[in-house]
Design a protein around this nucleic acid. Structure first.
Lengths: 108, 108
DNA sequence: GCACAGTACCTTGTTATACAAGGTACTGCT
DNA sequence: AGCAGTACCTTGTATAACAAGGTACTGTGC
């Protein structure tokens, strides 16, 4: 059970994290979920609706890769629109954090 | 009309901002709304449900002050629980920002 | 061959917060 | 009297995170 405040804070930020991870390397949902569960405490079931949204928004495209074991994996790759969205959202995130920190009276 | 991403990012963060402002000085809702509209782009109508929540949660208490002009103003003051919540939420915010920035591969 | 754990995928209803529309009411100015 | 600014407030909508519940495959141990 994650903290109520953490759940709210993550809204909007998880998409940015996914775009960041995919900007470095293509990945499949389960792997993304594991990384984000570890790094930012995201619930593992959260990834599938999120990836579906990104796909519907045209920010990612998918392809299948045979797995050494188990079923084939559904990989995600950023589209040009996805790369653009990543740049835009990153700038908005940095602006946002700066605004909130200033409101908190913190200079970090 | 504020950006969709900005709306999501603000979830959870506005309460923290209010607690921060009130930790410095008591204030009334309209004034808080003006400050937060300017500093973090919060919609002005957002403040009243937010202050109501804080009051119901026991984080603030209210008192009326005569205005030099116009109706009397409803001032808000942090309770001990409010001060505690502020400290806790600030720590959680800083942790959160650090986690997200690390996931973004940013070192700020 | 069966049971189990791990991997990998997915949908859906619930929850909580920001928004903004719509509203009341007072004062000072024109 | 009308208007703008100040100051208050409620409520329904929109959105994203959650997590419960589910399917299915492989490898391992018994």
């Amino acid at each position: 059970m994650t903290e109520p405040l953490q759940v709210q804070l993550k809204k909007g930020a998880l998409e940015l994290c996914v775009l960041a991870l995919l900007s470095r390397q293509d990945s499949y949902a389960y792997e993304l979920a594991s990384v984000l569960a570890r790094d930012v405490g995201m619930g593992e079931g959260t990834i599938y609706p999120l990836m579906r949204r990104l796909q519907l928004d045209g920010l990612v495209k998918t392809y299948l890769v045979e797995s050494a074991s188990g079923p084939s994996r559904k990989y995600y790759k950023l589209t040009p629109a996805g790369r653009s969205a990543f740049a835009t959202q990153k700038a908005e995130w940095l602006d946002f954090v700066t605004s909130i920190n200033r409101a908190l009276g913190a200079s970090r």
